Structure formats: C-alpha cells, structure tokens
Simulated scan of single mutants.
Amino acid sequence: MAQLWEGANTVELSSAGQIRTNTSAGSKAGDITLKMPNSLTLSDFRTAVLAQTENTSTSDGGNIFVIGSPKNVLIQNGAELSVNSKGSGIGGDIFLQGYSLTLDHGTISAETKFLLPLRTHGEGWGTHRYLNCPSYN
C-alpha cells in the first residue's frame, strides 16, 4: 500500500513525529511519496520518514519519494530520512528531487548488510539513495 502526502505547500515534522512504513513478515512494506512545492523540514531527534523491514521480515522494504521539486529540504538536529532492511529482503530506495538540500546534523541513510556492512542491521540486499538537488549544504 502506498502512502501519498500531496496538496500541502510545506511539510514539517518535529518532536519525534514520524511518517513510517514497515514490514515484519512476508508482505512488502509500502512506499511513501511526499509531494510539495515549497519545503520539507525534519527537525529533532527521533523525527523521521522511514521505510523499513524488521529482522523477522522475508519481504522487501518500501521506497521513499520526495517529489514536486521542493525549494528547500532541511533535515536537522538528529532527524532522518531512511530506508533499511533488517531482514532477508531487499531494502527500499530513496528518491529525492528538490532545489536545495541542507543536512544540519541530520541523516539521509540507506542501510543493509549486503552493500553497506558498516551500517548494517540485516542480511538483505542493497538499498540506494538518488538525490537530485542543485544546491547542497
């Protein structure tokens, strides 16, 4: 099942707010699509947009799409945009298309044991990050 957040000019998450998709069994985690023209702001520790699989999962993780070419994407103060596979399935991908990306003690991560052994949580295959932002800070 896909999650689509569309129609807002700005999306802001803080104070441990999350948009999350997850699987712990044999069904694929859903995709998350965020579409906004102005800005995406993730602030504060435990604030996140997550697509993940649990260690008991045998299926694939979901993808995260940030589209609509937001003018500003800000991930700060411990917030994260993350896909991962802790189980045996393939981890999802992150597709981020925007104008300006600022990471200020924030994280964009794609984690799985197969391709990224130093940031691993499972035995699943690779995940990818596709970033298209002319301005990066």
Rank of each mutant, 00 (worst) to 15 (best):
R20K: 15
G78K: 11
I67A: 08
Q18N: 11
G26V: 09
L115P: 00
L96V: 02
V73I: 14
F114G: 00
L74F: 09
T33Q: 12
I67N: 13
G98K: 01
S100N: 12
A110E: 01
I75H: 05
G17L: 13
F65Y: 15
D44W: 07
Y99S: 15
I94K: 00
P37N: 08
S100R: 09
I64M: 03
F45Q: 10
E54A: 10
S59G: 03
S59D: 15
Q76V: 06
D44S: 13
I94T: 01
S43Y: 11
T23C: 09
I94C: 04
L103M: 05
I67L: 07
T41R: 03
A29Y: 12
G78A: 03
T47S: 10
A25S: 14
S24F: 11
S57Q: 10
T47H: 05
I32F: 08
S109F: 08
E111K: 15
S69G: 08
P70N: 03
F65G: 00
T23H: 08
R20C: 02
N55F: 14
N77Y: 09
S100W: 11
T47G: 06
T102I: 12
I64H: 02
F95H: 11
L116A: 04
P37K: 00
S59C: 03
D60H: 11
G98P: 02
M36N: 10
K113I: 01
K28A: 08
D31I: 06
L34M: 07
R46A: 13
Q52L: 12
D104V: 05
E54N: 13
L74H: 05
N84L: 15
G62F: 10
N63K: 06
L42V: 01
G91A: 10
S88E: 13
R46E: 09
K28C: 07
A51R: 03
V66C: 06
K86H: 02
N55W: 14
G87H: 12
H105P: 01
V49H: 05
L115V: 09
A51I: 06
G92I: 05
F114K: 00
I75T: 04
E80H: 08
F114V: 04
T56P: 03
N38S: 14
T33R: 12
A51K: 02
M36T: 11
V83E: 02
E111D: 00
L116R: 06
T23Y: 07
G62L: 03
A79N: 05
A48T: 02
Q18H: 09
S59Q: 15
L115A: 06
K28D: 14
A51C: 13
G61M: 10
N22W: 12
